[in-house]
Amino acid sequence: MLAYAVRRLLFAIPTLLVISFIIFLILDLAPSDPTANLPLTIPQDVRQQIRLSLGLGEPMHVRYLKWLYQFAVNEPMHALEQLTGHHFSATPRVRVLSWQTRSPVVDLILQRLPQTLWVVGLSYVVGILIAIPIGIVSAVRQYSWFDQIGTFVSMVGYSVPTFFTGLLMIMLFSVHLGWLPSIYDTNLRVTDVASFWAQVKQMIMPVMVLALFNAAQISRYMRASMLENLTQDYVRTARAKGMREWVVVMVHVLRNSLIPVVTVIALGVPQIFGGAIITEQIFRVNGLGQLLITGIQGADIPLVQTLTFLFAALIVLFNLIADLLYGMLDPRIRYD
């Protein structure tokens, strides 16, 4: 297993290089333009000047290699210099700079990470914690009232988009009842009970909206997989051996049912770092999702390239983790 993991990690490097190049190719081919947001009063020659100052005059492969060098060499070196306080070279290192904000992309990402982890990450945890018990009970008591209501809520929760549920919650809790703020304050520092309470209040709505969506999806896979396993021969054998139903379900069936759920969760974790574009927009959480979408709208190639690449690295990593977990959940799965 360890050898397999190491091999996969090594293989991830060329994979990510290829992915990063393809991403760059797509961003380059896309017909959006960094000067599109400027008012029409800015004449074309000035726009051309701006494009040149952003380095767009150079051929595509040069720009790609520049980005790669800045990202893979200069950024880690910069971080190292910051940590140690020692400067390895006299000339300042050129970091990956966003075109829109002219500030280092990595700093922007670090700035956005807390609210994204709090809101999107927490909603994912909440979603999983709701979904797994619901999935299990729905399967064990298939077609009971609990199952029917669970099915209804999760299907409606999944099919109604978050822009609608989010707006509905704002109308209810912010406008009519006035209980919760409709705008997330990223300046808020939790220092005491009052500010903690304020943080909780501003997180409730976005977390619930996203958690409902995530829980709906995961609980469906959980239920389906449990149902599949409940009718297997080994369950009958276990029951025949006189094991208690609870042990049968929670130990044997659950473990064997987790493979699809692990897959879904592993696919979802990188999404946390991708942010939740719509929910972040509605509640103005301004996390990584909002960073990405403003970057895309402004054709901010260095920003979008870096974010997408980090996202790709997480996808590769978590898919590897999922594969390793398969092996633990079902020892019969072998990779060698």
Binding site: P31, S32, D33, A36, L40, I296, Q297
Partner: peptide, 16 residues
């Protein structure tokens, strides 16, 4: 047309 394209003026795009 997506505004980033329509107002973008990219000579490669037919939609400016």
């Amino acid at each position: 047309i997506d505004p980033a394209v329509f107002f973008g003026g990219d000579p490669g795009s037919p939609d400016t």
